[in-house]
Design a protein around this nucleic acid. Sequence first.
DNA 1: AAGGTTCTCAACCGCGGAGAA
DNA 2: GTTCTCCGCGGTTGAGAACCT
Length: 302
Amino acid sequence: MGRQPCCDKIGLKKGPWTAEEDKKLINFILTNGQCCWRAVPKLAGLLRCGKSCRLRWTNYLRPDLKRGLLSEYEEQMVIELHAQLGNRWSKIASHLPGRTDNEIKNHWNTHIKKKLKKMGIDPITHRPISTANDKSQQEQEQKQKQIPSLTDSDTTPDFDQNKEPETSLEYSSSITEAREEGGKSMTSTCDPMELMNNSFCTDEVPLMEPHEILVACADSSLSSSSSSSSSSSSNSSNFLQDLQFPDFEWPCDYMSNSMGLWDYDLSRWDLLINDNGDKKQIVDPSLHCPIMVLDQESWAYI
DNA sequence: AAGGTTCTCAACCGCGGAGAA
DNA sequence: GTTCTCCGCGGTTGAGAACCT
């Protein structure tokens, strides 16, 4: 059966997204939620295919995304999960809240692979790099091991503490270290090991409706890692930074009204910006009142 | 400073699975 | 059972950034 193209490609735009397109997509999804992606570009007034819109949203615009490099702890999690699951990036990503499969895949290919090779570990088999003679034998062994292990435990890899993963070798000590380190730097509710033990999987997290999107209150201690996010070549990078949900300091009355940034009509991005010493305010011109106050640190994002 | 090379990562492509008709 | 549509996944690409000579 021949496959039809995912969309009518004539007249559709490709390549980097512009700030304007991002606005349209965000505004549409916040208004309507995530529905049929095929219909999104038409309804949102975008000259993109639905697939491109979905990708842009899930990999870049989603408000629950963490930005910035993977922490040492996350990296070790990826290695361990990769040893269990192979190149199933979406499964791996499901164990790392706020991370996308694309991000993890890129990080694996650009950083972790090299790191493992440097350590003398084959990034594919997670075994010590050995001579050619051993290789074919090991490949066969690997195949035999992988087939049964992947069939039943896709979403709940076997991290039985009594049983060391077969593929976990030299780096196991560094994993332990990283876990200890991670325990310090991460809150208990974000501990991936704990999440896994509870069979948590972001696959199971229901889609957010616009009104359900919440922005965490300020905790400046957490902002440093996200601020190290890499620069984007896209000309929408500045706009993205607006959307990174920096650690806002929400005015009390604003919070008590149970309103969020996303309750505002985001098609009106022409909100005024007042410079008020240490704090900067985003002012709704129609209401003539500040809707958001950013402290100096948060302001660095904009 | 300039040119070349390498690195990074957002975005694209094509395929397979799931479900509806 | 077959066909079609949509979604999501994994591999790959290419533009821009960063680094090196």
